[in-house]
Nucleic acid binder design. Structure first.
Length: 423
RNA sequence: GUGGGUGUAGCUCAAGUGGUCAGAGUGCCGGGUUGUGGCCCCGGAGGUUAAGGGUUCAAGUCCCUUCACUCACCCCA
């Protein structure tokens, strides 16, 4: 019989690692709440059309990375490769923008892209995704970026760099595209095959190329920031002004492009040099046209996504210490002892004490060992002798001290000891 | 999708140019302590050496195929 394993690129998060995840999620939720964001939960699967229209037909994500299938021979469905399109779909579907013209929403959950797994890249990965809908004010851009940096800082992720750019509006973009196309035509002989392909489909992508000769050829290529219209230019300048006002350090990278077609104007990326090739820990941008692309009214928006697995790799251990998960362990010896321990455990649990009783048929030695393994600070030893005598043994596992506590005062005494332990 | 690296006990890893090489540490179970964890001592269980095929008197070791993991490209969080 062949052992069944998890599918490639899909990973288990084992009990050892879940405290780290919980720390990250808890921190994110509380800071997002500080900025007035509310949680929205969206399905992991959508009609494929949402993504082809939203993200863009010719992006790599849609072209070759989506998990798509035909549901019962009828409808094409896809696992979500990102969250923004779904959030906007939900907003439009429920007319949330009509109730509140400015929405701040976040979601945390798995995304799916069928790429070849490598360090920092899985097929099922997780994102913390935050979006502000309903305003195109540069003030919002700055605040969203500030939120992102605040969040990273709170998670103890410090060695990161913030890069920003403006991709302009549709008008700036088409002017720039034309300029790039003309420029690339002149260099067509010195470009790598990939870049020649890119220059046709998505000219901005050539700036991502790592081939040395291409980079040299592109040194003097036009940059988008030179083609911004007046409105986009002043928008971008104000974003930078506000970021400076917030004392956030950033670098303008006019060569930065993002992988989704819906981005307009402000785009940003946070990278680290601690993670190998997959160095982007978060990215985002403005998408003023997305709502209309999805058949809605004009709802400008801006948001970001944080890659949870990448962040987790950067979170320091001291934030995630794996403390004991029990307050007290009850070592019950024999049938009568277990009959005592069962209801008594319930009593303590109702008082929010974390308690576990060992399974039957085990020796005291085994039970103490079990308590030791789990780092439990106290063990209540319940044996036939103690029950008959009317007082039980409470053992302090750190120093080995034991004391007798009469069964009538047991609950009170244990609560008192555990409470002083917590202080 | 393309390329490189790696697959030996649950985990981390050993086994000169093919020839007692299937081992250690750790973890687990038991005993030393008939009811006291950690430290120490003793014992035990756990492997079709990823799978399949080939070369050979002989393969964990060499060759081929497949699979998995991993890193990088592509792309992105």
């Amino acid at each position: 019989m062949v052992k069944i394993t998890a599918i490639r690129g899909f990973k288990d998060v084992l009990p050892e690692e879940t405290p780290k995840w919980q720390f990250m999620e808890y921190t994110a939720r509380s800071i997002l709440a500080n900025y007035g964001f509310r949680e929205i939960r969206i399905p992991v699967m959508e009609k494929t059309e949402l993504f082809t229209r939203g993200i863009g037909e010719t992006t790599d994500i849609v072209e070759k990375e989506m998990y798509t299938f035909i549901d019962r021979g009828e409808e094409s469905l896809s696992l979500r490769p990102e969250a923004t399109a779904s959030i906007l779909r939900a907003v439009l579907e429920h007319n949330l923008h009509a109730v509140n013209p400015v929405l701040k929403l976040y979601t945390i959950g798995p995304m799916f892209r069928r790429e070849r797994p490598q360090k920092g890249r899985l097929r099922q990965f997780h994102q913390i995704d935050a979006e502000v809908l309903g305003s195109e004010e540069p003030y919002v851009d700055a605040e969203v970026i500030a939120l992102l940096m605040h969040l990273l800082h709170a998670l103890g992720v410090n060695h990161v760099a913030l890069e920003i750019n403006s991709l302009g509006c549709a008008a700036c973009r088409s002017k720039f595209r034309e300029a790039i196309r003309i420029f690339l035509d002149a260099y067509v002989h010195s470009l790598c095959p990939d870049c020649i392909r890119r220059s046709k489909n998505n000219p901005l992508r050539v700036f991502d190329c790592k081939v040395e000769t291409c980079r040299e050829s592109l040194m003097n290529a036009p940059v988008i920031t030179d083609y911004l219209c007046g409105d986009c230019q002043s928008h971008f300048l104000r974003v930078q002004e506000y970021l400076s006002l917030l004392s956030l350090s950033f670098v303008v990278n006019s060569r930065m492009v993002r992988g989704l077609d819906y981005y307009t104007r402000t785009a940003f990326e946070v990278t680290t040099d601690l993670l190998g090739a997959q160095n982007a820990v978060a990215g985002g941008g403005r998408y003023d046209g997305l709502s209309e692309d999805l058949g809605g009214p004009r709802i400008p928006g801006i948001g970001f996504a944080i890659g949870c697995e990448r962040i987790l790799a950067l979170i320091k251990e001291e934030h995630t210490h794996n403390g004991p998960y029990l307050d007290i362990f009850i070592a019950a010896l024999g049938e009568e002892a277990q009959k005592f321990a069962l209801p008594f455990s319930q009593l303590l649990r109702r008082k929010h004490i974390k308690v576990e009783t060992g399974p039957g048929g085990k020796s005291l030695k085994w039970l103490l060992k079990q308590a030791d393994r789990t780092g439990t600070p106290y063990v209540l030893i319940v044996g036939e002798n103690e029950l008959n005598a009317g007082s039980l043994i409470l053992r302090n596992m750190k120093n080995g001290e034991q004391r007798l506590i009469s069964t009538s005062q047991l609950e009170e005494a244990i609560m008192k000891i555990l409470r002083s332990e917590q202080n």
